[in-house]
């Protein structure tokens, strides 16, 4: 069965627009197997240990388990991104309706990885929260607005960001990022799962 990722026709590996011969920005489509949002009626309810055995994600921070990243996006509300295609089912099993809710958004989000020394400067053109390394250090995550689009931004490292947007806006995110990256030069790498 043919599955078409939202940026498959745009983020074609090898494409790009360098400055001279340099491309300081590398773009790659993010293709996680699962993107799941879950929330608890009581904001203080911890994520079940069966899902996150270690530290809970702090507000606007991400916690990781093997193959997964968990983001705290609002009080009692989380987003989980991972390679486990059964993640939504596992969460539904772990979180009964009496505790909270689970929504599978896997097909509802497009993801883009932005890598390079000027990655923060590039995204700062659109994001109106502080991307300074001290203010938004690695493994920070938050929801924000970028060119009138709601986005979820995760900083994985000093120069590595993942940006998720509603699937229908994938093209507009791509247009915005590739335009904003013109001054740095950009290239496309293979999709990241």
């Amino acid at each position: 069965m043919s599955e078409l990722y939202p940026l498959a026709n745009r983020a074609v590996p090898g494409a790009g627009r360098p400055v001279g011969t340099d491309s300081a920005i590398t773009l790659a489509e993010r293709r996680p197997s699962s993107i799941v949002e879950f929330a608890f009626w009581d904001a203080g309810t911890p994520i079940p240990k069966s899902i996150v055995p270690g530290s809970q994600p702090e507000p606007n921070r991400a916690a990781t388990t093997p193959g997964h990243v968990f983001l705290s996006v609002a009080p009692g509300r989380y987003m989980a991104i991972g390679q486990d295609s059964s993640l939504a089912e596992r969460l539904e099993a772990a979180i009964p309706i009496t505790d909270g809710t689970v929504v599978d958004l896997t097909h509802g989000r497009a993801g883009l990885r932005v890598t390079g020394v000027p990655a923060a400067a590039l995204l700062q053109k659109g994001l109106s929260f502080d991307l300074d390394i001290d203010a938004f250090p690695p493994m920070s995550a938050t929801n924000g607005g970028l060119h009138h689009m709601s986005v979820t931004v995760i900083r994985l490292d000093a120069d590595v960001f993942d940006v998720f947007v509603m699937t229908s806006l994938a093209g507009s995110l791509w247009d915005w990022v590739t335009d904003a990256a013109v001054e740095y030069g950009w290239q496309v790498a293979a999709p990241v799962t």
């Binding site: 078409l4 026709n9 060119h147 009138h148 689009m149 509603m166 699937t167 229908s168 806006l169 994938a170 093209g171 507009s172 995110l173 247009d175 915005w176 335009d179 904003a180």
Partner: peptide, 18 residues
């Protein structure tokens, strides 16, 4: 800034747009 012409606002596409 770049909020002009093609970039003036985001556009939403359905999965079958292409």
């Amino acid at each position: 800034g770049r909020d002009a012409g093609h970039h003036i606002r985001p556009v939403r596409h359905t999965p079958m747009h292409a």
